[in-house]
């Protein structure tokens, strides 16, 4: 038996709605990988997940799970025969069933059913919750039940649709780390849909950034963050200074120096991360006009000599007031994109 090449392989999958949907879902997910679909609302990420789960049938293109075709022009495997687990944003726990009944729902009536329910509850740290009513659970507990229910049948692929968005901030970051650990321990391949860049960056092995129904970039979190492939990716993930500047002789001139511009464009966009600018003696002079202090660091609003306004992230140790002179330089060259339209 050869091991499958991909857990998920989507090529050109399309599902259009009047006001959204997916135009072209093309991506591959490796077995055992924790993959995130990131994008603003309406970018098609939830539709993509529903295509993979089988709740939507693609208008065009094809979809394979573990090398088997599950959807194309001729075939369509319904969700109940895909072996895919799903955790919904609202958890979708069955309110007329106990915790154990919820978890057992996807298991066949057979010996060992109770053991598997116990195992699944143990995995999410809810041993002893079997007979509880789902109404009596906290948000975090409900989410763990949803996770246990999805994992109990031993799905080959787990799909999570904004699973953390209904939790408060503290619980959210704890559950993220916990879910990642559970996934890794269970060896499950998982796809996470989120609009929260911090969540995608911190949890996923790889990220696909979606924009208006298309995948704009796929890669590991650090690569997507530091080397955005498109302007959307650059401006959507992380804080950024955006500078629109004219191109002259293939070069774009800034106070920090001249950079090579993309060819065939009269104007281009520079994306400068606040942390890519630093205090540099002998650099460009400016005036601090505002400060947001975060404890671990601070972001300064700086007015440069040429009139440009920049956000600059500096360490908390830099003793700077909310106003006063400053000199700046770059740590890293800016990402430069041709302007659209």
């Amino acid at each position: 038996m050869t091991s499958p090449r991909y857990a998920v392989e989507a090529s050109g999958a399309r599902r259009r709605f009047a006001d959204g949907g997916v135009d072209d879902l093309t991506l591959t997910v490796q077995p055992g990988e924790l993959f995130a679909l990131l994008g603003p609302s309406g970018s098609g990420k939830t539709t993509s997940l529903r295509l993979i789960a089988g709740f939507e049938r693609p208008d065009a293109g094809s979809l394979r799970l573990w090398d088997d075709v599950v959807a194309d022009a001729a075939h369509f495997v319904p969700p109940e025969r895909r072996g895919v687990g799903m955790v919904f944003q609202d958890y979708a726990l069955f309110p007329h069933m106990s915790v154990a009944e919820n978890v057992a729902y996807g298991l066949p009536h057979a010996a060992g059913r109770r053991t598997r329910v116990a195992e699944a509850l143990d995995l999410v740290g809810l041993t002893g919750f079997e007979d509880r009513s789902v109404h009596d659970l906290s948000g975090g507990e409900q989410q763990r039940v949803a996770l246990a229910r999805a994992l109990a049948p031993g799905p080959r692929l787990l799909l999570l649709d904004e699973p953390f968005s209904n939790l408060d901030a503290a619980l959210r970051s704890r559950m993220r780390a916990e879910v990642r650990e559970i996934m890794k321990r269970a060896g499950t391949t998982a796809i996470l849909v989120t609009h929260d860049q911090e969540e995608a960056l911190s949890v996923a092995d790889r990220i696909a950034f979606m924009w208006r129904g298309r995948v704009e970039q796929i890669g590991p979190p650090d690569e997507v963050y530091t080397h955005p492939a498109t302007l959307h990716v650059a401006t959507s993930i992380g804080d950024a200074n955006i500078l629109r500047l004219p191109v002259a002789n293939g070069l774009v001139h800034t106070v920090f120096g001249s950079f090579e511009a993309p060819s065939g464009t009269a104007e281009c966009v520079l994306v400068l991360r606040p942390e890519d600018i630093q205090v540099l003696p002998g650099g460009v002079a400016g005036q601090v006009i505002g400060r947001e202090y975060f404890g671990h660091d601070q972001v300064l609003r700086v007015h440069l000599v040429d009139g440009t306004e920049l956000r600059v992230r500096v360490g908390a140790h830099e003793r700077l007031g909310a106003a006063g002179p400053i000199v700046l330089g770059l740590r890293r060259n800016p990402a430069i994109f041709a302007t659209e339209d």
Binding site: P79, E80, Q89, A92, H96, Y105, G106, L159
Partner: peptide, 26 residues
């Protein structure tokens, strides 16, 4: 909620079984 029915299908149940075990009881 439709997500309950979808969750049930995702757990391997045929639509008719979903109607019987989830939708109608609720």
């Amino acid at each position: 909620r439709p997500s309950m029915e979808e969750a049930a299908r995702g757990l391997g149940r045929h639509p008719i079984a979903v109607l019987r075990t989830i939708t109608l009881p609720l």
